[in-house]
């Protein structure tokens, strides 16, 4: 009866597109990861675990572990920065101020709907060491020593990229946290204040525990985004200076454009397995949320 009212072929279109453009390339990728597939020869040879060995031993002139390290640093730092700043702003907009709260919410979410390409281009000019707005501003208020060579300095490039991405993503996380905060009943806070709890007590013993499920979701979103980060790095620094800011995805693009398809697909496959394992936990998490 159910199968007749809700025929499975309804799902066919979505399933077909998903299989063709997501699943099949990923499975092909696993196969090609064991080959020397490249643009210079039509032959594709099986080379076993060689590609993986190249990634995990950094002697081959290309420091792949460095890209993986950058990706992990980027991911972890942006998770912490975005969550902390977004939580601060969310608390401010739900409790600190009443008037204009919705206006601020709309403005702060704006960076999340702009193309990452555009955000990166504009920040490239803002962070220009000689003429950029940031350094001009710092010099004008007498803080010359803070005017750095942001995206050009090998030690500051990655932190600068992280800062720009935090700017871009914080409003999005904030909006989710605001919804979470508004779902906490006021009675809890009233009861706590009658019992003599301070604002800080309520924050640690009511807000944080009740916000935990939402914080988990935002962390997962930041995690999935961070591991796959590409656009912002590609446009801001293109992996430079040198290869100081290269991440896994920009390295894949680099290998791809040099015609080393086997290597590119090996990096992709590595990421695929990590994401699938994470995805499994994410789905269990979301599942629990929707059922509960």
């Amino acid at each position: 009866m159910k199968a007749r009212t809700y025929p499975f072929y309804f799902a066919g279109g979505a399933l077909a597109l998903y299989l063709i453009f997501f699943v099949i390339p990923s499975i092909m990728g696993i196969f090609y990861a064991f080959t020397d597939w490249n643009s210079y020869s039509t032959e594709v040879n099986f080379i076993g675990l060689n590609n993986f060995r190249t990634i995990f031993s950094s002697g081959a002139g290309q420091n792949y572990l460095h890209f993986i390290r950058n990706t992990i640093i980027f991911t972890i730092t942006t998770i912490f920065l975005k969550t902390a700043i977004a939580l601060g702003l969310a608390l401010l907009l739900t409790g600190g101020i009443k008037r204009l709260s919705y206006f601020h919410r709309v403005v702060m979410y704006l960076p999340a709907v702009l193309p990452i390409l555009v955000v990166s281009l504009v920040f490239k000019s803002i962070l220009n060491p000689a003429t950029g707005l940031l350094n001009t501003f710092l010099r004008n208020i007498g803080l010359d020593f803070l005017a750095q060579r942001w995206l050009v300095d090998i030690h500051l490039a990655l932190p600068s990229v992280i800062a720009v991405d935090t700017w871009r993503g914080v409003g999005y996380i904030m909006v989710i946290l605001i919804a979470g905060l508004m779902a906490i009943p006021d009675e809890y806070y009233e009861a706590a204040s009658i019992d003599g709890a301070s604002g800080l007590d309520s924050f640690w013993h009511i807000t944080i525990p009740l916000l935990m499920p939402v914080l988990t979701v935002t962390t997962v979103l930041n995690l999935l985004y961070g591991l796959k980060v590409f656009d912002i790095v590609f446009v801001l620094t293109n992996g430079g200076p040198g290869r100081a800011t290269d991440t896994v995805y920009t390295a894949i693009f680099d290998e791809f454009s040099k015609g080393r398809y086997g290597m590119a697909t090996t990096l992709s496959t590595l990421l695929f397995f990590i994401m699938i394992i994470l995805g499994y936990f994410v789905i269990r998490l979301m599942h629990r949320e929707t059922e509960g």
């Binding site: 979505a14 997501f22 099949i24 390339p25 990923s26 090609y32 992709s268 699938i276 995805g279």
Partner: peptide
Amino acid sequence: FFIIMGIAMPTNFVTLMKV
């Protein structure tokens, strides 16, 4: 679950090119 796994799945641009 198989379909929403795609939320996490990264795109393999190289083999997608082949497809």
